[in-house]
Amino acid sequence: MFVFFCPHCGENREEEEFGYGGEAFIPRPSAPETLDDDAWGDYLFMRKNPKGWHWEMWSHNTGCRKFFVVKRNTATNAIAGSWTLSDGRKAYDAEGGAT
């Protein structure tokens, strides 16, 4: 059972309040109509799936209903922190778009 800190509600909340939103910061192709099927398929389906630290989105479904960013270790389930999307982006970039 996770306990997440929601950066919008400003409180620690139980996992039951949240929904998983997948890997964070996947850039949407700026001109999808110019992509071939492989490139579009990569954008839609291919994920890093790391063993270790993972930047991911969660949605506070039954609270503020906002998405936010969590850095979670997929091997240990340790949570390094949670941020709003914009603050999380800065932290992610500061790590060099980390692994």
Binding site: C9, E11, R13, E16, E17, T62, G63, C64
Partner: peptide, 18 residues
Amino acid sequence: SVYDFESLQPNRVVGTTF
């Protein structure tokens, strides 16, 4: 519900799972 309602202060409102 999953929220710690004992700690819910007056003048606070919480959206949570039921």
